[in-house]
Design a protein around this nucleic acid. Sequence first.
DNA 1: TCGGCCATGATAGGCGTTTTCAACAAGGCG
DNA 2: CGCCTTGTTGAAAACGCCTATCATGGCCGA
Lengths: 133, 133
Amino acid sequence: MTTGGTRVLRATKQRAAVSALLDRLPDFRSAQEIHEELRRSGEGIGLTTVYRTLQTMADGGEVDVLRNAGGEAVYRRCASDEHHHHLVCRRCGAAEEIDAPAVEEWTQRVAREHGFTEISHTVEIFGVCRSCA
Amino acid sequence: MTTGGTRVLRATKQRAAVSALLDRLPDFRSAQEIHEELRRSGEGIGLTTVYRTLQTMADGGEVDVLRNAGGEAVYRRCASDEHHHHLVCRRCGAAEEIDAPAVEEWTQRVAREHGFTEISHTVEIFGVCRSCA
DNA sequence: TCGGCCATGATAGGCGTTTTCAACAAGGCG
DNA sequence: CGCCTTGTTGAAAACGCCTATCATGGCCGA
C-alpha cells in the first residue's frame, strides 16, 4: 500500500521567500502582486513558482484564499488556524479576521432545512478601511 | 448639463431570448451555458451578445451574479428584488433564495466596529441538493 | 561526495471574458 | 411607408489569470 502520508516539501529559497513575505503582508494580495514584490526586493523567483507555492500553501491551509471583485485569487496568511471570515478593504486589501459562531450555526441550519448536504459557505465583508477613507 | 438619465435600451430579439431563458431556468448558469442552450433551441445569438446582455442585466440588478468554485461568473434571475442570499447546489446550480436579516445586521455592526465604510458583503451557502445527492 | 528526485521557471497553452469594428436593425421622423 | 441616426450584433482577435510542459538545477539522504 501507499503511505498516503503528507508529501515532503523540500525547503527552497523560493518557498522561504514567499512565506516570509506573507508574514510581513497584512493584506490580501494576488499571486502576481506577490511575484512583483519579490522581484522588486531582488528575489530570484519565477511567476510559476509563486503560483505553485501559494496553491500548495492554500491546499495545506497555511494561507487563506478568496476572490476579489474581478474574480482574481488573492492570498493572505492568517493568524488564526480556525475557520473564520474576513473584513476586507476594497482599496488596499487590508483584512481583519472575524469570528462568527452564530453565522456558522445559521448556515448549517438553513442548509439542513433545505435538504442540502456537504455544506460549505463563503462569508466575506468588504468595505473601505479607516485609513483609505 | 448632461441628462445622466437611464440609457434607453433597444428591444432586440436577442435580449428577449436571454431574458426568456432566464425566466425558465431555476439554476445559476454561466454565460457559456446560456449561450449553448439558446443555440440548441435555435436562437441566432452570439456569445458576445450573451456576455454583454448578462452584464447589463447584472448592472441593472435584474439578475444575480456569483462566482462558482472555478471563479466563473454564473447568473440567475431571482424572484426577489430585495437583497438576499443563496443556497446553491454545487452539482446542478439549483438555488434557493435566503433571507437573513440577522446576518445583514451582523455585517453592518462588525464593519462599523472596525471603522469600515461603504460596506458590502457576500454570503453564499454551497452544498449538494436533495436530488443530486 | 554522489545521485535520485523533487523543485524551478521560461514558454506555451487553456479558458473565461472583453474589445474591436464593420455590418446590421430598431425606432423616430418626415 | 421608407429614410436616417444611432444603438446593437457577432466573428475574430486581444486580454488576463492561471496551469501544463519539460529541460535544467538544487536539496538532501546515502
